[in-house]
Design a protein around this nucleic acid. Sequence first.
DNA 1: TCTTCAATTGTGGTTATCCGCAGTGTGGAA
DNA 2: TTCCACACTGCGGATAACCACAATTGAAGA
Lengths: 205, 205
Amino acid sequence: MSPSLATPFAHIVDDDEAIRDALSWLFRTRKVESRAWPSAEDFLAAWRPDWRGCIVLDIRMREMSGLECFDALLERGNTLPVIFLTGHGDVPMAVGALKKGAFDFLEKPFDDNALVDVVIRALESNARRQANQETQANVAGLLAQLTPREQEVMQLVLVGKFNKVIADELNISMRTVEVHRSRVFEKMGVRSAVELAQLLAPGRD
Amino acid sequence: MSPSLATPFAHIVDDDEAIRDALSWLFRTRKVESRAWPSAEDFLAAWRPDWRGCIVLDIRMREMSGLECFDALLERGNTLPVIFLTGHGDVPMAVGALKKGAFDFLEKPFDDNALVDVVIRALESNARRQANQETQANVAGLLAQLTPREQEVMQLVLVGKFNKVIADELNISMRTVEVHRSRVFEKMGVRSAVELAQLLAPGRD
DNA sequence: TCTTCAATTGTGGTTATCCGCAGTGTGGAA
DNA sequence: TTCCACACTGCGGATAACCACAATTGAAGA
């Protein structure tokens, strides 16, 4: 079903080669797949919305800063957890980043174990989110197969209205409503209005 | 229905009387109801789970610190947004607080306008949460009125099973299922299984 | 133009749901 | 012991939902 969901990577974005190498080595020894990028620009250029994993983002970089990169990612709808690394961070910076949705904010020098732990939690978090989104996407895909009229009927069915009432509101015959209703169930893969409601209701995130 | 939901207060917790007075004055001029507490202990002793509003919590205090107070509140299931104030905070402290669910973390000296804005947002956030919880509580109350057997039948109805199947699974007659089902609808104030599903499904928070 | 699909409707029949009326049995509270 | 809530059941009828078979219309495409 999913065509090419990239493997989960811990994306290291840092313009200091020594740090990139150190982190790459650290992750490798901990069995965490990682990939390193020499600048925010390089990373952003390569970034795809279907990527999975997380981002380890240095704040102070020569060109685009980590915070700017973060903003750019937010605009693009990034869902990868972002872990900030910084040597000269202050409280407002950290607070701002976290309130905008950063996963964590670590100061250098950081403990290797602590970082790996955070990264692993970030990867798990992303995996859970991905799982949710996939089922969501499946449902969305099914919904997209419905004709406009079918969706219209479905909405009324979901409110618990009788076919008779629906027919009345749409100025069509009851038989037509039955047909639409039946097609909705068929296309959505459910056998009753209740199942349909259950399928659509959980959708929240 | 709700017996005595306290008015929304911005609870100021600070052992420095000068700051308490300053904040009280600030909030009063901005039409924000507030109440001041001279220590974490005093606040915790008075704290009730049904309080509404938010908490402005100083970190450095003589006896119990703001962070300890925060932990104590978490254990008690506090839902009031907590805004930390500190003169000597560091990044890990701020990060830790926010990750544990603090609403914001401000350093002294802070901008009056900024603080008031944050407090207002916190109050709004709590009001929204409160609204959700109330509807949740109402639903829970309705559910509590169901007899065990009725709840049992309801579960099966919510999965979309036919009365016939339910009767079979519970080894009772279809008529009995119908009676239970009917009572469930009546007690829950709905007129169909779909409405019931809608009523129960949104429950997420 | 011919094909396909969405939307529409009808007939007739089966199955499910919804209810009122009526009644049995049981365990706990008054 | 009496009263009551709860669970249970049957009968019969009204209403709604589900479905197979059959068909028409109009618009978008091949």
